[in-house]
């Protein structure tokens, strides 16, 4: 019996842009289980980033509820949301978003020093295969290397879940695959839940569960009984 990590109930998010109301999420419901590798698939503007931001405690919904391990995070105040982001969530972004004036290792340490129960930094750096580049600044690293630093930074906090917003979006095919392999490795070896949002359909093949979105709604939500290894994906 799998434990529920996220339970999303009637979640809606509306933005007001001038005189237009943009409905980014429209009354969606789903559950995500602990230890899964989930792929949220959808074209640009489908609401997947908004969904990620809300379940990551970075944004608040217009209506609906999100439960994280039975606790309603949509009811949290600013202080509790900060605490939640600090302890339970690790973010990875499309454009890496590293601190330009900190080295790779220091970027990882930046995340670790505000958490209590963290992973060993060297171990994580080794896991992303960055030992020889750890003391380089982001400007001295390639895109793939920068994304690996971002993964190490998110994973080293030892969060319950890694939320990845288009982690391969800015990378070439081979580098993208290598990033996916690392994320899969973290999912398997460190037993962390990984949620990836992407517009890249082939990536869905590696997910334990796939959530397809369009226009703020869930079009399809299914369990993938035969997820494939990242090496076998092609786009």
């Amino acid at each position: 019996m799998k434990n529920i990590l996220y339970k999303v109930e009637n979640l809606s998010k509306h933005y007001i842009m001038g005189e237009v109301v943009v409905k980014a999420l429209r009354d969606i419901n789903f559950e995500i289980y602990e230890g899964e590798f989930v792929v949220v698939l959808g074209p640009s503007g489908s609401g997947k980033s908004t969904l990620l931001n809300i379940i990551g405690g970075m944004d608040t919904p217009t209506s609906g509820r999100v439960f994280f391990k039975d606790k309603e995070i949509t009811d949290y105040d600013e202080r509790k949301l900060t605490e939640y982001r600090r302890k339970d969530v690790g973010f990875i972004f499309q454009f890496y978003n590293l601190m330009g004036n900190l080295t790779a290792r220091e970027n990882v340490e930046l995340a670790v020093e505000i958490c209590d129960d963290t992973l060993d930094i060297d171990e994580v750096i080794q896991a992303v295969d960055l030992q020889s580049r750890a003391n380089h600044f982001p400007s001295q690293l390639s895109g793939g290397e920068q994304q690996r630093v971002a993964i190490a930074r998110a994973a080293s906090k030892n969060p319950e879940v890694l939320l990845c917003d288009e982690p391969t979006g800015a990378l070439d095919f081979e580098t993208g695959i290598s990033i996916l392999k690392i994320l899969k490795k973290i999912n398997r070896e460190f037993k962390r839940t990984v949620i990836i949002i992407t517009h890249n359909t082939p990536i869905a093949q590696m997910g334990d569960r796939v959530l397809k979105m369009r226009s703020g709604q869930i079009m399809e939500y299914y369990e993938n009984n035969h997820p494939i290894d990242p090496e076998r994906i092609a786009w």
Partner: peptide, 16 residues
């Protein structure tokens, strides 16, 4: 703005 967003995403508080 972006750095501040990342720091907040990492769990840094407004005060820090």
């Amino acid at each position: 703005r972006n750095v501040i967003g990342i720091l907040k995403a990492m769990g840094y508080s407004n005060a820090s």
